[in-house]
Nucleic acid binder design. Structure first.
Length: 494
RNA sequence: GGUCCUGUGGCCGAGUGGCUAGGCAAAGGUCUGCAAAACCUUGUACAGCGGUUCGAAUCCGCUCGGGACCUCCA
């Protein structure tokens, strides 16, 4: 390993050296989707960011247990106390579990489309009701929660006697109180800051469980505390999620963990930033959100045409996960060309082998440059998973690879050792770490070979009409013919 | 209103004190039947003003612009 991995910890707001609690094991929990409708692109960015983090940690040799939940109940919509799943179920006249299954399946398909690896454990809230009830009881026993009219609430003021509610998002309880609108008379809460652990269900509420507290359902924040603790322990390494979950969701999680176990859960908190469209956060209510399939097909009023999943992945990884990323046709088009350039480089180097028995005539400058670039890839990823910088370095390797193809750089100048390092580094960073894979839309690889052979023959015979015709034919397939001193090859059209 | 983030060349986007980020676009060159691709070269970039420093895009202050969270949201 080159250098140490450093991550920006939302808790300290500083870049810290990453030191797992129980190396080589790493526990990572990421807040997953609420499966009540299609995932939108913003969700994809978050899960893609943590996918790269997961991949890189594994690449570094850590044994990672990655837990990403599915929220299938209890996500309060508003003051009505109705949750997202049951509202949708009523709307579509389906069983809540049908909604859950439908959108869970859809979610998995989308994740696969973008080459996002599945987590090691994907627990559901409904599958952990007993554990949630246990944690509620613990919180009540410890004096951090109270029952009120069949519901159970977390008691922020009690919590603050011993802990500090708001430390993650930098909020002060007094400020929060000043800003919070007054409770309507009907509330069972002692303070507007208190949040629900268990909600008594209204008669029309369809997802409900009969417990000693009431016939009701769990609060949203609880499941994450319960499931992270169950699968990763009272203290674990990384907890992630989108920025917008920082408050109140993650703040509540910390409170629940501390209140029940005495430990605050995660050592490192990591937050991904938002996707924006024309500078404004992508969200459904603003009508500026894209569904993954719309971006791929181009079937959206804001889009001129579609983009392949790997182009989108590349586009997203070209910015740092903690920065906002703005969507535009121009930016996407530029990313498409850039991605094809990278993909062509990847395809080339995968096919290259250092020639057997070739005498080395090392060009020290070239070899040093290449080794430096390889080092830089590690440095970039070690620096808080800087995929944007990593991609920049990979493009520098692409130049070397292309130079080999055109014969401007020779194998013997690089030497076997450096060549092998370049090859393995390039492939590992593209495929294993960034999760970019080649997308071949060629109808037939063999056909391509045949046409290229035909092209070669025509070229040698100086039959230029035929040459131009074949060129056009291949271009229609998205393939560009490359005439070089060293021979004829092809590349994906950029 | 409170808390916080942010403003980089035509566009996107890295970069927290001195070391060419990178991609797209543009210009010139090499190569070529012509092209394309590739490679090489080129761009008075760091919102404005002031300060700290031998030296600042990078630190500090002010001004102006953009955004997020404070209610469900990745």
């Amino acid at each position: 390993m080159i250098g140490k991995l450093r991550v920006v910890n939302s808790l300290s707001r500083e870049k810290e050296v990453f030191e797992p609690l129980n190396a080589p094991h790493v526990g990572m929990y990421v807040c997953g989707p609420t499966v009540y409708s299609d995932v939108h692109l913003g969700n994809v960015r978050t899960f893609m960011s943590f996918d790269v983090i997961y991949r890189y940690l594994q690449f570094l040799g850590y044994k990672v247990r990655y837990v990403r939940n599915i929220t299938d109940v209890g996500h309060l919509l508003d003051d009505t106390g109705e949750d997202k799943i049951s509202r949708k179920a009523k709307l579509e006249n389906l069983e809540p579990m049908e909604i859950v299954q439908k959108y869970t399946n859809d979610f998995h398909r989308v994740m696969e489309t973008f080459n996002i690896l599945p987590p090691d454990i994907e627990p559901t809230a409904t599958g952990h009701l007993m554990e949630q009830l246990d944690m509620i009881q613990e919180l009540v026993d410890n004096g951090f929660a109270y029952e009120s009219n069949g519901s159970v609430y977390f008691d922020i003021s009690k919590f603050n006697e011993k802990y500090d509610y708001g430390k993650l998002s930098g909020r002060k309880t007094e400020d929060l109180l000043n800003q919070t609108r007054e409770l309507d008379g009907g509330s069972d809460k002692r303070s507007p800051l208190d949040f629900a652990l268990w909600k008594k269900a209204a008669p029309e509420h369809i997802m409900r469980w009969n417990t000693k507290w009431s016939d009701g359902f769990p609060g949203w924040h609880l499941e994450c505390s319960v499931m992270s603790t169950k699968y990763l322990g009272e203290e674990f390494d990384i907890h992630g999620g989108g920025m917008d979950l920082k408050f109140p969701h993650h703040e509540c999680e910390i409170a629940q963990n501390a209140g029940s176990t005495g430990k605050e859960g995660a050592k490192y908190w990591m937050h991904t930033n938002m996707l924006t469209v024309n500078g404004t956060k992508m969200s459904k209510s603003l009508g500026n959100s894209f569904l993954p399939h719309e971006l791929i097909s181009g079937d959206h009023e804001l889009l001129e045409h579609g983009y392949s999943p790997m182009t989108i992945r590349f586009f997203m990884l070209q910015s740092h996960y903690a920065s906002t990323l703005d969507f535009s046709n121009e930016a996407l088009d530029a990313a498409q060309k850039g991605y094809m350039k990278l993909a062509n480089g990847l395809r080339l180097i995968k096919n290259y082998e250092y020639p057997e028995g070739l005498a080395e005539e090392i060009n020290t400058k070239q070899a040093e440059q290449i080794n430096k670039i390889c080092d830089n890839c590690y440095h970039a990823m070690n620096d808080d998973f800087n995929t944007a910088l990593t991609i920049g370095h990979l493009f520098n390797l692409v130049k070397k690879v292309n130079s080999i193809q055109t014969g401007q750089l020779k194998f013997e100048e690089i030497g076997k050792e450096t060549f092998e390092r370049m090859k393995s580094t390039f492939i590992a960073f593209c495929e294993e770490i960034l999760g970019l894979k080649l997308e071949t839309n060629l109808s037939s690889q063999n056909l391509l070979e045949v046409i290229l052979e035909e092209y070669k023959v025509a070229k040698e015979a100086k039959n230029y009409d035929k040459v131009d015709e074949l060129r056009a034919k291949l271009k229609a397939e998205g393939v560009i013919v490359k005439d070089m001193k060293t021979g004829i090859d092809w590349a994906f059209e950029e």
